Simulated scan of single mutants.
Amino acid sequence: MLSITVIPVKVNGDIAPKSDLGLVILESLYANGVALQDGDILVVAQKVVSKAEGRIMDLAKVKPSRRAALLARDLQKDPRIVQLILDEAREIVMMKNGIIITETRHGFVCANSGVDQSNLARDNAAILLPVDPDASARRLRSFIKKQQGRDVAVVITDTFGRPFREGQTNVAVGVAGIKPIKNYIGKKDMFGKKLRVTEIAVADEIASAAELAMGKSAGIPVALVRGYEFERAGRASIKDLSRPKKRDIFRHTCNNR
C-alpha cells in the first residue's frame, strides 16, 4: 500500500508582480527545511502564479461596456468585474443568483471566469487566471530541473465549485510532467470484471489533497506531495480533463432550460 505525504511550504510575504516564482519556491522550500526528491509533485496555488505573471487588474482602468453594465445591474455585481468576466470568457453557460458560469478561454467551466478579488493586498483590484497554466507549470518544472537536477511534476491549482455538490474543492488548472488522468478502462477489478468507464482525475485529487495542507489564508500557497506513483508525461496538458461540450450534461441542461 502507498503512503502519501503532503508537506506544506510557507512563503514569507506576498508575491509581487514579475517575481521569479521558481526562485521564491526554492528559497521557501529551503527555509522550511524541505529538500526536493525525484518523483515529488509540487503543487502551487494559481493565485501566486497569476501574481508573479502580472495578472492583477487595476479596476480603475477597466471600462465596462454597455453589455457589462446591463448584466451587472441585473446580477447586482460590479460592472468592472463583469467586464473582466466577459473578457476572460469564451462562452457564457449560465447566469443566476449573481453568478456567471462561463467557459474560459482555457476551456474551464467555472464561476466568473475565475476572476477573483480575495487574498489581494491591493484594494480596487482583481486577479485573473494565468494565460496558459500548462506553460506556467512547465516553466516551473524546467527551472527546478535546471537549478536542482530534480525530476518533479508540477500541478497548479484553483478552487472551483461543482454543479451537483455543495462546497468548493481544489482542482488542477495546469500540469507538467504528470498525466492528469489514470485510465482503468479494460483492466479488471478485484473480482475479475472488466472496467468499462473508470478514469480517475488524479491531478484533481492531488490538488484537493494538497489544499488540506495549504488552506486559504495561512500563507501556504505551495505544497509537496510525496509518495504517489504517478504516470509521467513529457507533454502533459490540463485539456485532457476538459469534457467535450457535446458530452457535457451540465451545459446541455442549462441550454435547454
Rank of each mutant, 00 (worst) to 15 (best):
I4P: 09
N12Y: 14
D14T: 00
I15N: 06
A16C: 09
A16K: 10
S19L: 08
D20S: 06
V24H: 11
I25S: 00
I25P: 08
S28H: 00
A31Y: 04
N32Y: 01
V34G: 10
D40S: 07
L42Q: 02
A45F: 12
Q46K: 11
K47N: 09
V49C: 11
S50C: 05
A52M: 08
D58V: 01
A60L: 09
K61H: 07
K61V: 10
K63I: 11
S65E: 03
L71K: 01
A72H: 08
D74Y: 06
I85P: 04
E88Y: 04
V93H: 06
M94R: 12
M94V: 12
K96Y: 12
K96G: 07
N97D: 15
N97P: 10
I100K: 03
I101A: 08
T102Y: 02
T102E: 03
V109L: 06
V109P: 01
N112D: 11
V115Y: 03
Q117G: 06
A121H: 00
R122D: 03
A126L: 06
L128G: 02
L129G: 02
V131N: 00
D132F: 14
P133D: 02
P133A: 05
P133G: 00
P133N: 01
A137Y: 00
R139M: 10
S142H: 07
K145A: 13
K145E: 11
K145F: 11
Q148H: 09
D151R: 09
V154M: 01
V155Y: 00
D158H: 07
R162P: 05
F164T: 13
E166K: 13
G167S: 08
T169K: 15
V171F: 03
V173M: 04
V173C: 08
G177W: 10
I178K: 02
K179T: 05
K182S: 01
N183D: 15
I185G: 05
K187I: 09
K188M: 11
K188C: 07
F191D: 15
F191V: 15
L195W: 05
V197I: 13
T198G: 07
T198C: 11
T198W: 15
I200K: 04
V202A: 03
D204L: 05
E205G: 06
E205D: 07
I206W: 04
A207G: 07
S208Y: 14
A209S: 13
L212I: 10
A213C: 04
G215R: 04
K216W: 15
S217Y: 12
G219L: 08
R226E: 12
Y228D: 01
E231M: 15
R235S: 13
I238F: 08
I238V: 13
R247K: 14
D248S: 10
N255C: 06
N256E: 15
